[in-house]
């Protein structure tokens, strides 16, 4: 499903070379829930963005469903990403002038086809957003924002969900709602790559991949 082969990513920070990923390889099966754990600056987000086709590694390859992601032209990769992956980030990245319902529908801008209304309703219900659909992000709590971002990521049932520190700002109750939703998605055949330094949360995954600072 996901084959990461010997990827290296180097950043230049104020003239100094920082190796975020160094000859790193990882294989994830379809339907697997993998947690990537490690200290700050160990390259967790870099790995996630590389899998998501958003950050080209300096060396190595990322192959998803048999497609070498970085061999594709940019526009093709964009379409591939829209069809295959969903993203959730710690900072939610909700569009401030759209309400909850509109934010969830945003992937429709890139999707080839209609919004699956039944799934949209199901996600709103599952994530407890029914009462908040007309509210803008500024009127939501952190948990509601993250649930909205999760609903947006899962709307078109992507093959892979890439989640970066999604519970970092949430209370226990919201963590449970989010995690239950992730397990539901996994049960339906989805693959999850979760980046977190919350050990308790990572233990709930099928597998933990430890990244260390180089």
């Amino acid at each position: 499903m996901i084959e990461i082969k010997n990827i290296t990513k180097i950043y230049n920070k104020e003239g100094a070379e920082v190796r975020a990923l160094d000859d790193y390889s990882l294989s994830i099966e379809k339907g697997e829930f993998v947690a990537i754990q490690g200290a700050s600056g160990c390259g967790k987000t870099t790995l996630l963005l590389s899998i998501g086709g958003l950050l080209s590694p300096d060396k190595g390859s990322v192959v998803i469903n048999g497609n070498a992601v970085y061999d594709m032209p940019v526009e093709e990769r964009t379409v591939f990403r829209a069809k295959t992956m969903g993203f959730v980030f710690q900072q939610y990245h909700l569009i401030p002038y759209l309400n909850v319902l509109e934010n969830i529908r945003v992937p429709a801008l890139a999707a080839q086809g209609e919004v699956p209304e039944e799934r949209l309703e199901m996600l709103i219900k599952t994530l407890g957003l029914k009462e908040r659909i007309n509210h803008t992000p500024a009127e939501l709590s952190a948990g509601e924002k993250q649930r909205t971002a999760l609903a947006r990521a899962l709307l078109f049932e992507p093959d892979i969900l890439l989640a970066d520190e999604i519970t970092g700002n949430l209370d226990e109750k919201n963590v449970e709602i989010v995690m239950n939703c992730l397990f539901e998605y996994q049960k339906a055949g989805g693959t999850i790559v979760l980046v977190s330094h919350d050990t308790a949360l990572c233990k709930r995954a099928d597998r933990i991949e430890e990244l260390t600072v180089k």
Binding site: E75, G86, F87, Q91, H93, I95, V106, L109, A110, A111
Partner: peptide, 15 residues
Amino acid sequence: SEIGILRAVGVNEVS
């Protein structure tokens, strides 16, 4: 941030 997430969900450059 808005542009970043739009690009992440697959909105192309032209859009």
